[in-house]
Amino acid sequence: MNFTVVNKQVCVDNVRIIGVTSSSVFLVGDTDSISLSSVFDTPPESLIIGPFVPLSRS
């Protein structure tokens, strides 16, 4: 497959961002490849009700 990109002039005045978070990218420039993964786990088991027990320590 042949893939050609022609980059013309880019001129941006103002950028306002609250958050770039959890494997996100804000790029002013060029890159060949971007690979982003974000895992977010909130299963029902993660809700613990009862007497306080500290988390296991490493």
């Binding site: 959890s22 494997s23 996100s24 790029l27 890159t31 490849s33 690979s35 982003l36 974000s38 895992v39």
Partner: peptide
């Protein structure tokens, strides 16, 4: 290359 990973 940009290769980012986050696990929460």
């Amino acid at each position: 290359v940009i290769d980012a990973e986050s696990r929460v």
